[in-house]
Design a protein around this nucleic acid. Structure first.
Lengths: 238, 238
DNA sequence: CTTTGTATGATTGTCAACAATCTTCTTGAC
DNA sequence: GTCAAGAAGATTGTTGACAATCATACAAAG
């Protein structure tokens, strides 16, 4: 086996023990999966992770269960964990769900009596969106603002279960969201949606907020899926 | 082996020939929670469960994680697991999410080209609904049919992630669904919704299917919450 | 009587070893 | 050369013991 980075790589004991070992390990593995250090489809073996973090397999098992709950890995009976590698169809499915639940979220906000307090923050973030949208490049800065905006809204909606589910789905699709916002043209379209949403919230128009939210997510999905298909065609033709 | 399944396609191929101990224990505990043998809020201690099933604490811990994923227990750091005891607000939140996702599901079915094959089964189940709706009593038989209907539709929608989420939410709310369908009057209303949905599916009218699904779930929610509030008032007045 | 500190038991968190199962490699037949 | 057993190694599943932390009871001080 390749053992280029053995046990000495990471010491968890120095970190604050407010979290259990399992949670700390889950956080570290989560970073690696989201950053692409662990590729989609790659197997994650308990022994290896345990050796690297200098812990036993117990906490690692539990960490992998936590990641499974987040949708970052799948665990197959007696075959261990591997990084989730969704098909285009599954990506489509997840975006469909996100579209509906974002619609619910934004409707709740638009119909909330306490929405006024939120509007200044939204205006500020959306102003930043405008600023970053036109920059050339892949728009990682833009996506960061979008993520912040979504967190702000998901938190403001006040539905705790919705927050959990949307957080999990967002983590699973952040890679594709980034892909779907990788051109200035798409970012311009995205900014428009956010501006429309802001207006709907100002007006207290729940129907409009829901409609715009769904459109926003589904457009993001369509853009991402189109690019995904192109990527696949290129790689399969090579 | 007569069916050579390529390793790359294992995303959902795992058919557990033998359930792990954790899964068996989770199933048993799940029964007890849903039947009320374990009351909401009750603590579940690893040692006790392990002793009862004559296994070690490892599989029990994992079983509790599985139940947490289903929303049947919550696990607090260093304080163990306890049966979920949602507030009325949380019940409301879960029903809101169910309403949206049932809307998505029923829209997908109504817009599916293969919906024709489903219609005879729906007709049969809904005929049974009609039969059971008018019976006096709390309508447990009626709820059984509703659960079967929902499973049928959720499966037919073909969105695997949606199936997982809706299954979990259904488990968490079955108690309240039952409460909301405990009067013949409400069951008559419910049957009407199902008949309208059937017609929308026949017509291939996705908009109508979504609208009806949301109405159905939200009516169920309102009925359940009203009864819940009455129960609380009674018990707090005593 | 309330509050604070401490001891004690209960409970979860972690570990290392063993068992069961799967994967891979070899071997052999056709 | 292809395919099918079978053996060897790798990996997950399970166990019991130990460590760390939490909850409770009780005593002492104000």
């Amino acid at each position: 086996m390749t053992s280029p980075v053995p046990a000495s790589a990471v010491t968890l004991a120095a970190l604050p023990l407010t979290q259990s070992l399992a949670e700390q390990i889950a956080a570290r593995l989560s970073e690696r999966i989201l950053s692409g250090a662990y590729a989609p489809g790659q197997r994650i073996m308990e022994q290896g992770v345990a050796a690297e973090f200098a812990v036993s397999r117990g906490p690692v098992r539990e960490a992998l269960r936590l990641l499974e709950k987040e949708g970052l890995v799948i665990i197959l009976a007696r075959r261990g964990a591997q990084v989730t590698n969704p098909t285009i169809e599954e990506v489509n499915e997840i975006f469909d769900i996100r579209a509906m639940l974002n619609g619910l979220r934004d409707r709740m906000i638009a119909e909330s009596p306490s929405r006024e307090a939120l509007i200044p923050q939204l205006e500020q973030e959306i102003a930043q969106l405008l600023q970053f949208a036109e920059l050339p490049g892949l728009g990682d800065d833009y996506v960061e603002i979008v993520i912040r905006l979504n967190r702000l809204l998901t938190h403001a909606a006040g539905n705790h279960r919705l927050q959990t589910i949307l957080g999990s789905l967002a983590v699973q699709t952040v890679r594709y969201t980034r892909l779907g916002l990788s051109t200035p043209q798409r970012r311009r379209q995205s900014v428009q949606h956010w501006q429309q949403l802001l207006q709907a919230i100002r007006d207290g128009d729940g129907d409009a907020a829901e409609r715009i939210a769904r459109r926003r997510v589904l457009d993001s999905r369509d853009a991402a899926v189109e690019l995904l298909r192109n990527q696949q065609n290129v790689s399969s033709a090579a």
